[in-house]
Simulated scan of single mutants.
Amino acid sequence: MERFVRHRRLRRNGTIRRMVRETVLQTDDLILPLFVAEGEGIKREVPSMPGVYQLSLDHLAEELHEIKQLGIPSVMFFGIPAHKDDVGSEAYREDGIVQQAIRLAKETEPELYVMADTCLCEYTDHGHCGVIRDHDVDNDESLKLLVKTAVSQAKAGADMIAPSNMMDGFVAAIREGLDEAGFEHIPILSYAVKYASAFYGPFRDAADSAPQFGDRKTYQMDPANAREALREARSDVEQGADLLMVKPALNYMDIIRQVRDAFDLPIVAYNVSGEYAMVKAAALNGWIDEQQVVLELLTGLKRAGADMMLTYHAKDVAKWL
């Protein structure tokens, strides 16, 4: 018989499969998004995201302790203010909800690495990521407020700033603002490649941030475009980004790989709310094995080139691992 390669020799049992495994998922790869809400006694499950809650500060310390005990190294805060206005002033108020959450986190779990989402959409009454002029987002006026937001988050004790607004020049503006305020040591995780995706629906439910008119297609990217992703990422690298994010994750694994191949900065994949909701819905109906699907999903993102994953599955994954 003609000789052929026996690939199955290295799949014969679980031990050898683990020994030759090329991509290993670990708890240190995980960042958990958290929704913090103004008020008291709030632990409100997001209807479209089973297992994900809006939490008031009086419930946050307990949640942070659990996260730390599970070995999850980092969280990212998203704020739900009691008051909204046309310029999102609660985003940069020194005692805003995210600023309070950051301080609480650093007081109660100081080793937890705290990231702050830096955007205005959760805080504006129109739901867009900046200042509105003539029914469109004014890019340069919005940058001024985003800088104020980033600096206020850094003053509160954030370990990393994560701007998600997709304004042109936002990394350069925030870097300059942080440096001038004495925060040269604070890194920027840029939402460098953020698509105008249909997978954000449950997040807008969770963060109460749906646009009140129009959409975000004038500043977020067209899902059909790949080369544009590299242009966006390159701009942010040149402006001083320390890490790059691709959002969403599952439909954009090709983009994760292209960004990984083009740049040597750490890459974060955002496993977004719609992706989470689909898995949860299928699992609750008994159609899939949730644990196996989630672990395969996140391993796939890491194999594609992501160094870290921002994911609502983080607590479950930490328990499974």
Rank of each mutant, 00 (worst) to 15 (best):
Gly214Cys: 02
Ala233Lys: 09
Lys217Ala: 11
Tyr195Gly: 00
Ile255Met: 14
Tyr200Asn: 01
Arg216Gln: 09
Leu230His: 02
Ala207Pro: 00
Asp242Ile: 05
Glu228Asn: 02
Leu244Gln: 06
Ala198Gln: 14
Ser190Asn: 02
Gln212Met: 13
Asp208Met: 13
Thr218Arg: 05
Val193Ser: 03
Gln239Thr: 04
Gly201Thr: 11
Arg231Pro: 04
Tyr219Pro: 01
Ala249Lys: 03
Glu184Lys: 14
Arg234Val: 00
Asp208Gly: 06
Leu243Phe: 12
Ala233Arg: 03
Val237Lys: 06
Glu180Val: 12
Val246Lys: 00
Ala241Asp: 04
Asp242Ser: 12
Ser235Tyr: 14
Val193Thr: 10
Asp242His: 14
Tyr191Cys: 03
Ala196Gln: 01
Asp215Tyr: 13
Tyr219Trp: 10
Pro211Lys: 15
Ala207Asp: 07
Glu184Ala: 12
Ala229Val: 11
Gln220Trp: 06
Ser190Val: 00
Ala198Ile: 09
Gln212Tyr: 04
Met253Asp: 04
Ala233Asp: 01
Ala249Ile: 02
Ala249Tyr: 01
Phe199Met: 12
Phe213Gln: 05
Lys194Val: 03
Tyr219Gly: 01
Asp222Trp: 09
Val193Ile: 04
Lys217Ile: 02
Tyr191Leu: 04
Gly201Tyr: 07
Gly214Trp: 07
Glu228Trp: 04
Pro248His: 08
Asn225Thr: 14
Arg216Pro: 00
Ser197His: 03
Ser209Gln: 10
Leu244Thr: 07
Ile255Phe: 10
Met245Val: 00
Asn225Cys: 15
Arg227Cys: 11
Pro202Cys: 03
Gln212Leu: 14
Arg227Met: 15
Ile255Trp: 09
His185Glu: 14
Ala224Pro: 01
Ala226Asn: 15
Ser190Leu: 01
Tyr191Arg: 07
Pro211Ala: 14
Leu189Lys: 09
Ala249Asn: 02
Ala224Met: 10
Ile186Phe: 07
Asp236Asn: 06
Gln239Asn: 13
Ile186Gln: 01
Met253Glu: 13
Ile186Thr: 13
Asp222Gly: 11
Ala206Pro: 12
Ser235Pro: 00
Thr218Pro: 04
Phe199Glu: 02
Ala207His: 11
Asn251Cys: 13
His185Ile: 08
Asn251Pro: 10
Pro202Arg: 00
Ile188Gly: 02
Ala207Trp: 10
Leu243Asn: 07
Gln212Asn: 12
His185Cys: 10
Asp205Trp: 06
Arg227Ile: 11
Asp236Lys: 03
Leu250Asp: 01
Val193Gly: 02
His185Pro: 10
Tyr200Gln: 05
Tyr200Ser: 05
Ala229Asn: 08
Tyr252Val: 02
Val237Trp: 11
Tyr252Trp: 06
Phe213Glu: 00
Pro248Tyr: 06
Lys217Glu: 07
Thr218Met: 00
Pro187Phe: 12
Asp236Glu: 11
Ala233Trp: 02
Ser209Asn: 12
Ala226His: 15
Asp254Glu: 14
Glu232Ser: 07
Asn225Ile: 08
Pro187Met: 07
Glu238Pro: 07
Arg227Leu: 14
Gly240Gln: 05
Pro223Ile: 01
Arg234Ile: 04
Val246Pro: 03
Asn251Trp: 00
Ser235Thr: 13
Gly201Cys: 04
Asp236His: 11
Ala229Glu: 09
Pro202His: 01
Ala229His: 07
Arg204Leu: 02
Ala224Tyr: 11
Leu230Val: 15
Ala224Phe: 01
